[in-house]
Design a protein around this nucleic acid. Structure first.
Lengths: 224, 224
DNA sequence: CTTTCAGTCAAACGACCGTTTGAAAGTCTA
DNA sequence: TAGACTTTCAAACGGTCGTTTGACTGAAAG
């Protein structure tokens, strides 16, 4: 009987030597799946391509992850959990300062973790990719992984922008997310020709753009 | 011998009665393909589902469009061509006024055609959907259909915002496109919970957001 | 009427899909 | 060593895929 979809973190640590091979198999499958999902998308990627690239047997994917969707969920969760943790950590640090949060600091807490330490990290592109998948595939995952973080940042934005109506803040936060996804999903975006590609630079540009869009009359924009 | 991918507009008008049925078949295939591409995406939609919904034979899709990709190109082009025409018309009208264009008017010319006359039109969602498809499918189409319009609006934005560097304008226009795509692709976007859904309202909100993000110190924002 | 040909149709092509099976191999416990 | 597991493996399951074929239809052209 296969473990199918386990929580992943709290497995009984009965043995170390035995599990190492199995854990290695799981990791290799996740790595291959992630790379191919980013390159081709979820629907267009076959389990055979994944297991072939990982150098493991086809059935191992089902044994460890239960199904192709389970594999996507695991690959996505592996990258999103640290991202969410970093974001919420930064948000909590801002809120702990006592005074109402600043919109620019909020956007920095929300967007800067995407720049990441490793510019080769596939995490941002995996996140961006998922937003383009068919609704039946992507919707439950996005809801599960992001709803809490989105709700907390939205609440903080309402505090930071007391002069804006909640509806306007909701719209504009929604647009920021759209711009973010667009930045993450494309290496060489097709619409503006010859676009810049340095992801860290893009995040900085996006923070400026987001703050301007959210609160155009904050005169501190250029002085901070 | 099938016509495969014809230009569509300049066919020899030898007969009217005979072609009417063929044109009707093509339209029905395009309508069904469009609806299913929007619902499920390109890769996840089969030609059998399309022709079944259209009530035509499976082979008719290949006869009229050459391949599944050819069908996507035709369905996309059918919606994008009027959109591009409307956008360029509005842009030309602005440029014909003699003075340098205003950023808000440019964004209105660029975004307002998406609100459309018919709120039931599937065009915006088809455009939004294509941005999420795997690169090999979407990239050539987006390049072909949008590069000219993007270049012309970018050039006009440079005139409208002489104080901003071309790089910054390019980034911000890129973010506006991302927010636009995000708005078009989702009925009920998953990230900000309980989002507003009226598309016409969304476009107006997006224009405000875009103008703020592009040029935060334009004091005319609230007075126009 | 006969020819011509764009268009439609049922049927099949080979390939690939996600998933399942049952046996074999490996690893720890007693 | 014997037994009880977890993990791997080759092989196959039933289906669906995009595409092609060749016969057939019916209106225009001679």
């Amino acid at each position: 009987m296969p473990p199918a979809s386990a929580s992943g973190a709290s497995k009984r640590p009965r043995s170390a030597a035995r599990k190492r091979n199995a854990a290695d198999t799981k990791t290799r499958i996740l790595d291959a799946a992630e790379a191919l999902f980013i390159e081709q998308g979820f629907v267009a990627t076959s389990l055979r391509a994944i297991t072939s690239r990982a150098g493991v047997n086809l059935a191992a994917a089902h044994y460890h992850f239960g199904s192709k969707e389970g594999l996507l969920g695991a690959a996505f969760h592996r990258r999103v959990e640290p991202l969410n943790a970093t974001r919420l950590e930064a948000l909590d640090a801002l809120l702990a300062e006592g005074h109402p949060p600043d919109a620019r600091e909020l956007m920095r807490a929300f967007l800067e973790p995407l720049a990441g330490v490793d510019p080769e990290s596939p995490m941002p592109r995996l996140v961006g990719r998922l937003f383009g998948e068919p609704d039946a595939v992507a919707r439950p995952l996005l809801e599960r992984e992001f709803s809490e973080v989105a709700a907390r940042f939205f609440a903080a934005l309402r505090e930071a922008l007391p002069d804006q109506s909640p509806e306007v803040i909701r719209w504009r936060f929604y647009f920021v997310v759209g711009a973010m996804i667009h930045l993450l999903a494309f290496d060489k975006p097709p619409v503006p020709l010859e676009p810049p590609v340095d992801p860290a630079d893009g995040i900085e540009q996006l923070i400026d753009f987001a703050v301007n869009g959210l609160d155009p009359h904050a005169e501190s924009v250029r002085d901070v």
